[in-house]
Amino acid sequence: MKKLSKIYTALIIFFMYMPIIVLILFSFNDGKTMVWKGFTLNWYTDLFKDSQIINSLWNTLIIAFLASLFATALGTMAAIGINNFKGRKRILLQNASNIEILSPDIVTGVSLMLMFTLAGVAFNFKMGFLTVLLAHITFCTPYVVLNVLPRIRHMDYSVYEAALDLGCNQWQAFRKVVIHELMPGMFSGFLMSFTFSMDDFVITYFTRGASFQTLSIQIYTMTHQRISPKINALSALMFVVVFVLMVIINIKDRKLEKQKVQKAL
């Protein structure tokens, strides 16, 4: 039984990693086809010389950073407010927030595009950086709400009262105490927002206007022209970055957990 489980797990992991590994492997191939012609780093140097890709990378990072920052602030405030509603009103607000998560990306994308087009005519602007940013904040905020809400609910409310008791007004109590309690939720909301924003293609595709490029859009354009090992190189780099980040976060988490366990003992 144990052996069977191991084999099964290994098969699934193989299924999930094999395409990525093949991609990475062929990013070092000195040829444009999937036939091995020898080792090269040319595709990587090409990649860094491609100013369009570098530019898109910057755009992606800036959008992801700003969108998640804004979403974290908006979502945390929203979660605090929602938590103080009772009964039906609260369920209504939570569901309204979840609609954005549950509705298909493509519907969010086209509906925002409709609005931005109309607003663009009315207020004389073109879709681009700003509309993409607004769209990203829109789909990121519900995730922050989702992450922060349970933290608030499980927060020891008397910690907040203790701060009031010791002379804080409400704002001070929030700034000096409550925010520290919500930090883990806010952080994971931020992280989630950041990755979803980085990864998003569909919503960006519909709200970017004519010229604004993000990495996803860039990849889309490149893959549409089919087969360029430059993409393989890009995939490889992104994978390595993600992998390293995840491992670091995981190790950190584990250390924290160990400390917690020791404390508990």
Binding site: S158, E161, A162, L164, G167
Partner: peptide
């Protein structure tokens, strides 16, 4: 916060 009264909470509620 304006009362000259302080509280020790049931669960201590330390920060």
């Amino acid at each position: 916060h304006k009362r000259n009264v302080n509280t020790v909470f049931q669960k201590y509620s330390l920060f």
